[in-house]
Write a protein that binds this DNA or RNA. Structure first.
Lengths: 192, 192
DNA sequence: TAGGTTTCCCTAAAGAGTTTAGGCAAATTA
DNA sequence: TAATTTGCCTAAACTCTTTAGGGAAACCTA
């Protein structure tokens, strides 16, 4: 039987494309086998199971995203860096909805720690260097930015902002303006 | 054959509980049938298909959440209202992770429009009455708040903030402080 | 380059979920 | 009480997942 040259990597890449086409939760071993014109069982020599496959796709997406973000941030600082960084997330989410959904997959701690998630956190911190935040406020800010990027892109692709004015593009820029202002003027804890 | 008294509502409620126990994407017609001690096919007189079932769970969760939020916000204003409102989202997400995941499900536009999603948007706007924002800034702020609540709770339940200091509770309060400050001081668009 | 070894994809099969079609008895209505 | 509607059933087709074991292709190695 002719060998097709399956590898975990090729399956992962094809799975990522499939995810962008049909949605991350529709990524199925059967469909993947069909695309490689191969029997389903053959995949199981390369990936442990469907969960393993999805995890690989998630890690691939996180890696790609981290690479893009690193490029975007290089040579920029302050609001410029913030905007560039944020745009990478949003653009990626719109260009690759399936992969983006994959990045939101729950990973078990050690897998997450081994993946590019840490690079993301480090880059977010790097961006905050342009603002004068000290710990623990920096961590709070990192989490805020993560939440906004995560939440906005996920609501946007879910269609939450469509069919209403102003369009989401404008909200995005204005939200970044607001976040920039907030970071330049991060409040100290109020006396409770 | 003894009748169990299945209805779409009972199935939906049981499905919501199942979602909280095993995760929203593990909600299966078969498991539900098992719980009611009924054959799977019997569910299909009450619910169109699995997607329909999930949609109903999502709508139930949105409804519950809107009710809780309405209670929490009543009689409060300003930061007080903001905090109460935000807490409802976060607490709900921690108490009912499956239902919360359901609220993040992509709904087709008319279903979404018919559901409680609009109530959420209206309440968010009501909270912003305590801050002096005019359109279109109010819409941007609504979207920012939605993104943060959505993103934070989803990252938190995905375990994104665990095993690191400070704990997510503290970040949550400090992020609310920050958002309050931001809303009181929403920046006008910079000259670009 | 022939032999052995490893690798890769195959067939086969079992298990679980989804969904439709059609039937019979229980509940409701007249 | 008879007629109708409703609710749960059996049966069956289909899809996807996963494991076990087999044979041929690709790769060493002498």
């Amino acid at each position: 039987m002719a060998r097709v040259g399956l590898t975990a990597e090729r399956l992962t890449r094809a799975g990522a494309e499939l995810a962008d086409e049909v949605g991350f939760d529709q990524v199925t071993a059967s469909e993947l086998a069909r695309r490689f014109d191969v029997k389903v069982a053959s995949l199981y020599s390369h990936v442990k199971n469907t969960h393993d496959l999805r995890t690989r796709i998630a890690l691939l997406a996180l890696e790609e995203l981290a690479d893009l973000a690193a490029d975007a941030v290089a040579g920029r600082a302050g609001k410029d860096a913030l905007t560039a960084f944020a745009s990478v997330y949003r653009d990626y989410g719109r260009a690759h909805p399936g992969r983006a959904a994959a990045t939101r997959m729950r990973l078990d701690p050690e897998t997450a720690a081994a993946g590019a998630g840490v690079r993301h956190a480090r880059m977010t911190r790097a961006i905050l260097r342009g603002y004068e935040l000290t710990e623990p406020d920096q961590t709070h800010a990192v989490r805020l930015l993560g939440s906004v990027f995560h939440g906005f892109t996920s609501l946007e692709t879910a269609g939450g902002f469509s069919h209403s004015t102003p369009d989401s593009e404008e909200s995005w820029t204005r939200i970044l303006d607001a976040l920039d202002a907030l970071l330049r003027n991060w409040p100290s804890p109020p006396t409770r």
